[in-house]
Every structure is written in C-alpha cells, then in structure tokens.
Write a protein that binds this DNA or RNA. Structure first.
Length: 367
RNA sequence: CUCCCGUUCGUCUAGCCCGGUCUAGGACACCUGGUUUUCAUCCAGGCAACAGGGGUUCGAAUCCCCUACGGGAGGCCA
C-alpha cells in the first residue's frame, strides 16, 4: 500500500462530485486537501504491468512506466487534461480507448490515474497520425484537408472521404482499396493497423472520389451537382430538371470532381462561354472552321429531327457529297458551340443543346 | 533536455511476427503507346523503394546492435 497524492486527490474529487458533501471547497466548487496543489499533484511511479500497453499490433506491446510527476490540477484550480480525460472515461464506463499515437506516452499517466481511482483501466490501442500534406508535423485543425466542412463544400463524396481516411494507417492486407463503410467495418482489425504515420495526399482522395462519382446513378449525380452548379453561378435555382439531367448524363463520365464540373459543362447553360484560344488555333490550322460550319449550318437549320442519329446521317450524307469524312466537321462544330476542344460525344451533345442554341452559336461564331 | 514510437517506389501501402517462394507486389501521381470525332473515360506498357553501417546466418526487407532521420509526449495545451 503506497499512499499518494493522487489517491488523496481522487477522494477529494469524488467528494466534490457528491452533492451531499459539505466539506471545505474552493470558490469554484472543488474540494481541496490542505496541501498545496503541487504536493497534491505528485504521483508515484508504478512498475509497468500488462495494462500499460500501447498498441494491439502484431503482438507488440509498449510497456512503459510513468516516472515523472505530472500536473493534475493547475495553479488556478482548474483540472488538467489527464485528470479530466480519465474522470470522463470512468464516468462513461469506457472499456476500450483507441486514439492517436500522440497519446502513446500519455497512456501510462492515464493508467496510473485509473489505478488511483481504483478503477480497472481500459484497453489502450494507438493508431498512427496523419501528417500534413506539406511541411512537417502532424495534421491539425488549420491544415489543409483537416476540416470535414471543406470536403463538404468542395463536393467530395462522404463515401470517398471515409474510404480514403480509413486507408491512412490501416489496410485490409489484400489489394482492396475501394470499400464502403460497411465493408471497412467488417474488415477492420488491429493487426491491420500500421506502425508508421501517414501523409495526407489529396490526389489519391480525388482519384477515389472520381471513381465513386462515376458510379452514381444519374438522379443522385444530378441531386449532388445541382447545388454546386448553382453556387458556381452556372445554373439558376429554377433550372429545368430535364435539361440539367440530360446535360449531366453526358458530363458525368467525364467528370473528375463535382468541384470542377462547372468548368466542364458550363457552356451548356450560358452563351457566354469562354473560347479556348489554343484549341481554336489548332483547329484553324487544318482547315477553315467558318467555311466548314457555313456548309453544315443549313442542314442543322432544316433537319427534321434534331437528335443524334438524324444529325449523324445528315452530316454523313453531306460529308460524302463533299468527298470528306464526317469527322472533318466535328472539331469545328465542337469548338463553335462549346469553345473547347474536348467534351462529351459531339452529336448527343448537340442534340441536348437543341437546335436553337446550336444554330445561334454557329451563326455567332461565323460572325 | 528527458522519455516513447517509427523508417519499403514522390505518396498510401503488401511483404516483416513464423529468414529462402522478393530479379520486392498493388494503388495514386507521372511518362509512353493504343482506342475514341475530341477528352479529364477505358485498355496496355513504363519509371520508381527495402535510410546507412555492423552483426547473426549457407541465406536478411524480414532477427540483433549502433548511427542518422522523421514523428510524438512531458516542462501547469487538449
């Protein structure tokens, strides 16, 4: 039996938690022993025992006895982290503590406290930390990637974020990477936890996110994309659902993120789209786009049904008559109507835009 | 300053506990080629790592030691 300040303090705190206790208390409600805080805070060092384990990992345990006294209650009477933490755990009946490796060397302190309170310490396990993407040190609140709100506002999918984060410091030991939360929960185990810290990498997160994004059914995709396009000023609040969905059906397979979606498909919604100069000059090198467009404009204006198949056969017929391949007209058509060199399949794209828009844009382009 | 933990491609990692099957595997990124009207899709290929040194051993990424580097905790933050 080794009397200690910790035990004394534990009694004092217990008393202070008891409403019927009328003993002397500090102004802020703490009952204090007559010793100075410093004396009370003194702790004894116990030899380590099995409970002082650091991590349940490959049978490796960290056994470490606390050797230095540490502060329980500050000079101003407020309780320190270690004390608060342990009391909280005891109050909530915590049995297992899984937390970051930054607490590895705190664990022995906490074990001592549990012992002092006469409570069986919980099992401790520690997981590696996530390091900042750039620079040194662990990731903390202010660092890039640390805020869930940031993922939300940038349109990252929750499944992707969860999936990515779960892979930092743990993996299922097979080649599997893409896992939903149920699969992760099923597969998670302590031996799968890595020893070393992991560095956050947004590129990998983005890749996962893009994967999930393309898997979404069009209704979900539209539901998620709408507010983002709204916010970007690309689409108005009352935008037509059918048109929006038709556009997104074409753009989803090309989408890399919701964040960049407005750049990808903005021209579907505004006539004020930017012209990619580089793409323009590249196209102009081969042939005169205005001339080509002049040829097909009447066809587009007069074609009976403005759908992809009809457009295809009409344009093909025309191309043959000019002894050209139909594809010769594609780059100019795309550039005039979207300002870009790439995008969804051209014909379906024109069909979705509709005759009015397409014809107007080509006229505008020809000047 | 003290104590603790870690170190495999640029990054996340498999392999390490139970040495040989590792000319070290996968993924992201990057590069090349193919497909495609285009493209941020898709397919194929490529680049690229066992921190350094010693030891044990027939044999070490794998076991032991040292060094270096990284990370964490403690000196009344949580």
């Amino acid at each position: 039996m080794r009397p200690s300040g910790c035990v004394l303090l534990a009694c004092a705190i217990r008393a202070s938690l008891d409403e019927n206790d009328n003993g002397p208390k500090t102004p802020d409600g703490w009952r204090t022993p007559t010793n100075t805080v410093r004396d009370v805070a003194r702790l004894f060092a116990l030899p380590s025992d099995a409970e002082q384990t650091g991590r349940e990992h490959r049978g490796g345990r960290v056994e470490r006895a606390e050797e230095m006294d540490f502060v329980l209650v500050r000079k101003d009477g407020s309780p320190g982290f270690h004390l608060v933490n342990v009391i909280d755990d005891i109050t909530m009946g915590i049995t297992h503590v899984i937390r970051g490796e930054d607490h590895l060397s705190n664990a022995s302190k906490h074990v001592e406290l549990f012992n002092a309170f006469g409570v069986k310490p919980p099992k401790f396990a520690h997981i590696p930390l996530i390091l900042k993407e750039e620079g040194s040190g662990k990731m903390s609140k202010r660092d890039k990637g640390a805020l869930i709100e940031e993922y939300e506002s940038r349109g990252f999918l929750a499944v992707a974020v969860r999936n990515y984060i779960s892979l930092l410091g743990w993996n299922p030991k097979d080649e599997r990477e893409k896992m939903d939360i149920d699969e992760i929960i099923e597969l998670f185990d302590f031996p799968g936890i890595n020893k070393g810290n992991a560095r956050f990498d947004e590129k990998k997160l983005s890749a996962l996110n893009a994967d999930y994004l393309r898997e979404l059914n069009i209704e979900s995709f539209t539901f998620l994309a709408r507010p983002i396009l709204n916010k970007a000023g690309v689409v108005s609040e009352d935008a037509d659902e059918d048109y929006l969905q038709a556009v997104l059906t074409l753009c989803q397979p090309k989408a890399r993120s919701l964040e960049t979606l407005s750049e990808l498909c903005g021209y579907f919604f505004t006539d004020n789209y930017a012209m990619d100069e580089k793409a323009g000059s590249k196209i102009a090198k081969k042939s005169d786009p205005k001339e080509l467009l002049g040829e097909v404009l009447p066809i587009l204006e007069s074609i009976k049904s403005f759908d992809a198949d009809s457009l295809k056969s009409a344009l093909e017929t025309h191309a043959e008559s000019k002894d050209q391949k139909v594809f010769a007209y594609f780059p100019a058509l795309r550039y005039a109507t979207s300002g870009q060199a790439g995008g969804p399949d051209l014909l379906p794209m024109l069909a979705v835009m509709g005759r009015e828009r397409v014809v107007a844009r080509i006229k505008q382009f020809i000047g």
